[in-house]
């Protein structure tokens, strides 16, 4: 059952990720990207990390996919016309296939057939406690980066208006 769900999620995630890149209509691409994010959230949920899954949905689908849709709507259509792909596409396909085959071989050749864990699922409140106690410096640094990004965006917008 879990394997079937995993396979389904994998197919959904990968296919919609490819669609996001290859779709002729950019709106289709944006929606496919959202679907791909939903698939990733599904993986988190499968790993019993419901909190992370929900945050994946709120942040990536609710904010990032929507922001991309925003940009698609605001920028004029001509900008989205496809440029020539050249050799990069074939190189990319070969490289990603090589990585996939390599990883697959690695897993297949190892003796791992199944993984069991006895570790109990940690309550999500622990994440908050840990971030605020042990990793407070990273939290402060991140918030400063975000704040400066917001200030920068406002300044850029103001410059353009004047």
């Amino acid at each position: 059952m879990v394997d079937a769900v995993f396979a389904l999620l994998a197919v959904v995630t990968v296919v919609s990720a490819i669609l996001a890149l290859e779709a002729k209509e950019v709106v289709y691409g944006a929606v496919a990207l959202a679907l791909s994010f939903v698939g990733v959230a599904g993986f988190f949920a499968l790993l019993d990390a419901v909190f992370l899954a929900m945050f994946q949905l709120t942040v990536y689908v609710g904010a990032i996919a929507v922001l991309i849709l925003f940009t698609v709507m605001l920028v004029r259509r001509e900008r989205w016309l496809k440029t020539k792909e050249g050799v990069y596409k074939s190189v990319g396909i070969v490289a990603s296939l090589a990585v996939a085959v390599g990883l697959g071989y690695l897993v297949y050749s190892s003796s791992i057939t199944h993984v069991t864990t006895t570790v109990e699922q940690a309550p999500f409140t622990l994440i908050g406690a840990l971030i605020l106690s042990e990793y407070w410096a990273a939290l402060v640094a991140l918030s400063l980066v975000l704040a400066s990004a917001v200030v920068g965006a406002v300044v850029l917008a103001k410059l353009e208006r004047d």
Partner: peptide, 13 residues
Amino acid sequence: VLVIFAVLGFFPI
């Protein structure tokens, strides 16, 4: 509560 907001995030799309 988080689930509800995750779901509400889909409506703009």
